[in-house]
Design a binder for these strands. Structure first.
Lengths: 219, 219, 219, 219
DNA sequence: AATGAATGAGCATTCATTCAT
DNA sequence: CATGAATGAATGCTCATTCAT
């Protein structure tokens, strides 16, 4: 787990508790949504509710911490990927194929309007997200310059599309849930290649446009 | 609205109310998930809770009715599309571009595990769904025979992919929410074309495999 | 059914409906208490709720009518019994052994505080009840004068005791429910005979004292 | 209160609350039946509904606990009585004259079919009840051998008869409600004596026959 | 006049959050 | 500090009563 330590000093055991809670919450939120009873989260972290609430005064603050953590991981991964790959298209492909943390982010931002609202109003997470999007933006530009990525597409589109392919797999039986995302990312990538492209309807969606304000949807 | 009239005879006003409730529930479920307070559903249908409950004795039975209705509409639309288009690829494209009812089905089946469980145990809805999948299956085969659709793909894949592109748009600002689905369906279609396709990882997923049994996820 | 016709004129079919409702309500109240859903009562009378409510504007008024009817029957039976039996003790025995209408009265008065409150405030029923108690009072006096009935007992005691033996049989299996009341009435009668008697604790309870004011108990 | 401690360890305050709830529920159930609003029970125990539900997850489990407790007390009382009284008839008399806990049992078993169903399916309570009935059975046999108790009677009859005399007193004004049960128990006992008894109709009812299966009656 | 639909108040139950141990 | 108990507000569902057909 990667945690941007905001709380300066924390005794070792308290720290450990905090981490266990975030891990557990991430798993539980990903599996069953952000509306699970707090007691469930506590139980699955192996602590009492009291402890949970001492660390995170309400559900929102827990969601915020989980999001924070996931965004951090995504950013780190992305940096690591870029550090090794000079080819923009390959880098993009790899990033889109990435796993759990990205999936958490997707769930949190795409599926739960509550999480979205929280994330949108958290400067810390937003900052990390912006850094991530900048990196992707650069890759997009470079991949297009290389003639690999279609022109009528922008960073926001990529963000949304990666999101789609990483979610919604719960409808599949266990066996397929593992292989399906890779398949659909691959289909998408084929659809994103310059060579294949028919002109798209609408207009490119930029990175700035995917940070959202719709607070009503709640699955 | 398309309602398969199961209840033999219903007084005109009762019928009207029933329809209003299903419409309202469809909208509300699509907007805010299947867990909205029943009172909300009632209010948005302009009836009292009592009426809602008289017609649908519990939430499950309402979800079932909404699903039924949505599946019916999807099937009808699909038939109409096929009736006019002899070209399989075009037919598939059009079906994938279709709107609200399909979106409801997707929401209901992909996002809410509760809805999934209900639908899976409703023979009526399942029957309609099967008819729909058969139609698509035929289109897929034909489009592949025509050399339009890539070979390493099957009906289940198409079903999942259409689902993905039709959901998750709530993360976008109002303006884009309208145009985005069409864009992403287009990208997907480009990715699905036979020409230039790279081999996909995994294996084709058949129609039978997307009727699902995982009841834990609940957003 | 014996109904003291208060409502002067009533069309034949309306009259028939009224009677069917009272019969049904008597049965249902006796079986399942005075709190059964009105819809149940209506269904078991074979009419719609609307009709039920047209006849009896609320639950209380239905209970009142049922009580009325039962009291009437009890009074009639008692008169008939007395008319044939000059021996007071035998008359008392027979009255105590009587069946359904008496049982309804007992249920209504002993088990449901609501019914009790209603009956107590209904001059009509009260009048009938008073006539009944006067008859019993006379029998008690005569049976004591004959040396058959113990002296330290009064009409109120008899009323309460008959009530007890006629109720609470629902705890027994079907077969016994039929024979049990007769057995226990017999035991009671043996206990009431002058010859057997040890002095009782407390004091004789008169007829006036069993018309009651406690409105809290509600089974 | 006698509580069979099933839950291993319970914080002092929780334990205290548990006991208060059972006491309150016993009183309230006895006064107003097993259908009182849970909120009433909670209020009368001086706790919030939440606490009530934490301890007893639903109404049935509360009824079960109250029954358990009452049966325990009855059994204890009975043992104590027997321990001091070698004379079977006197022991029986005393047991029949006993008060509140017995009355609760009676209410619960005789008046509420719901309670009956619960008790019948609770092995724990059933066990205690069986022990109780064995003790009474023995007393009945001895009292008959002593020539004190009439021969044409069995344990089940005694159980039913004690039940009758201990209930239904709510029809009486406050003052009499205190003395009445003793009076009627006395009458019954006179009726149960061997001397002067007339043969009873029907047949003796054994202890096994009063554990019942009729779940429809609900007062 | 009879019917059954509509309404909404009432009670059961769950769960976020606070607080005593 | 950690724990789990207590609280009460929110929501599901039922049913008495009213009213349109």
């Amino acid at each position: 787990m990667t945690t941007t330590d905001t709380t300066p000093r924390l005794r070792a055991d308290a720290r450990r508790n905090r981490d266990r809670i975030i891990s557990a919450a991430q798993a539980v939120f990903t599996e069953r949504g952000t509306e699970v009873p707090m007691e469930e989260v506590a139980r699955s972290a192996g602590v009492g509710v009291g402890t949970l609430y001492r660390r995170f005064p309400d559900r929102d603050s827990l969601i915020r911490a989980v999001a924070q953590d996931a965004f951090d991981t995504v950013l780190e991964d992305t940096r690591a990927t870029i550090a090794q790959k000079p080819d923009a298209w390959t880098a993009l492909s790899q990033i889109m194929h990435r796993g759990l943390a990205l999936r958490t982010v997707v769930r949190l931002t795409v599926l739960s309007s509550r999480a979205r609202a929280i994330i949108n109003s958290d400067p810390n997470t937003e900052a990390v997200n912006n850094q991530f999007l900048e990196l992707v933006e650069d890759l997009v530009r470079r991949a297009q310059a290389d003639g690999k990525l279609r022109e009528d597409i922008s960073t926001g589109d990529i963000a949304v599309l990666s999101g789609l392919a990483l979610q919604g797999m719960q409808a599949l039986p266990e066996e397929l849930r593992t292989i399906a995302p890779a398949r659909y990312i691959a289909v998408l990538l084929d659809g994103l290649r310059a060579e294949n492209s028919r002109p798209l309807p609408g207009r490119p969606i930029s990175a700035d446009e995917v940070i959202i304000r719709t607070p009503e949807v709640e699955f």
